[in-house]
Design a binder for these strands. Structure first.
Lengths: 221, 221
DNA sequence: CGGGCCGTTGACTCTTGTCAATCGCGGTGG
DNA sequence: CCACCGCGATTGACAAGAGTCAACGGCCCG
């Protein structure tokens, strides 16, 4: 893990492309005031690491990934944001993560100036639950095996989606960068869970069905 | 990682002991109102997972570890809290982590009822920085090798301590459970860094001196 | 002086990452 | 319409990093 990356940006290429494409126009695309909706196409950047923290956001539809890149090109996704989630909160003047739409999405932007005055609103609550999610995530990354991570991830997604058969909006690479695993290990763990009859992966590889939730929860322990 | 733990509580024995010892008297030991200081001896529990979230805390002196246990006895420390840090914030009615004093410490408790009204205070800020710390931690756990994790950890501790030669308050087991490594790997990584001349570990094994901060920061990348 | 705890070190195992080949699907252009 | 191409996903073979098991040493404390 310490060698110079042979392949520094291959997996984040969509990212790079999206940023290159969006960057020139982004200032104009930034919302002018709070409550303004913003439509995003797949791969489009909401804000990038280093951008001023002028706004925070709520997901209306679609899904957003929030991530950081290491200097050798590895990516760590720290959260997937689904409709209703708030993201883009932080202390500094600059965002410390980048965020992109995984698929066609829309978000609402809120001026960050409102934070200190409006903190009685849902913001404190949002921050706390984001913090708890981050703690859970640390537990997962620090102490769980590959299959356990996948099981936890699937249960978490199932809980946040309406149905028990659902489509994952993100690619294997996204999942891997979220769970701290390689694409191959993600794939292998999924097939193992399928072989063991705990899940099913029909043909469209993004669709997932949970067949034995109890067994998955046993893994989650 | 998925087998039944042979050794479910050995490493958390101090925890268990502390909890057994403190539990009967803890209700009485709980602070009666906000701003009340509480002295803690080594290993003593501030609050345990499942306790009602009646209070949150600020460290006055010493150091506190915040952790969760998996059902098979593995422990993941999600933060070390040093003087000035606020901990014990969360959305639910019950704490989701346990916290213990690593060494003789003192904390101040604040009633949690104050949160919603007093959120203009430093609380939002504290939450945000806790969240950012958690994101950094996830990056570390997901994408860094053992030596990198140790280097980052040492730099972080050095930054939070006054001096560049300092004493770590926590054991190797604590460090391991924080960084998602085994005790042995922590030890080996430290000796490797010492062999390479980046740090020195005098005789007292808890003391650390940074000899080549630039090289450590290069690892941090 | 003895025991226990913490830390270190060595030998070995095993999980996961890496490299590489293949498959299947969807879009594109001839 | 069909062949081609590219991308995402899967699978296999192998390598490497970290975990496990075990032994040992030093230190503190009784």
């Amino acid at each position: 893990m310490m060698q110079i990356a042979v392949d520094p940006i291959a997996r984040s290429l969509p990212t790079g492309m999206a940023r290159m494409f969006v960057a020139p126009g982004r200032p104009a695309a930034e919302p002018a005031r709070s409550g303004m909706a913003r439509k995003l196409s797949k791969g489009e950047t909401v804000f990038a690491e280093g951008d001023p923290t002028s706004f925070y956001y709520r997901v209306v539809s679609g899904s957003i990934r929030s991530y950081t890149l290491t200097s050798d090109g590895r990516r760590q996704i720290d959260a997937f944001h689904l409709p209703g989630d708030i993201f883009g909160l932080g202390t500094g003047n600059e965002h410390r993560v980048s965020t992109e739409a995984i698929c066609r999405s829309s978000v609402i932007a809120y001026r960050r100036t409102d934070i200190d005055s409006l903190s009685e609103s849902g913001l404190v609550r949002a921050l706390m639950s984001a913090l708890e999610r981050a703690q859970d995530h640390a537990l997962l990354l620090g102490r769980k095996s590959a299959v356990e991570r996948i099981a936890i991830f699937l249960l978490d997604m199932a809980e946040r989606m309406p149905d028990s058969r659902f489509d994952l909006p993100m690619s294997r690479a996204d999942i891997g960068d979220y769970l701290g695993l390689s694409i191959e290990t993600v794939s292998r763990s999924l097939t193992q869970l399928e072989r063991d009859g705990l899940i099913e992966i029909p043909h469209g590889r993004r669709s997932i069905g949970l067949r034995d939730r109890a067994a998955l929860e046993r893994l989650e322990a």
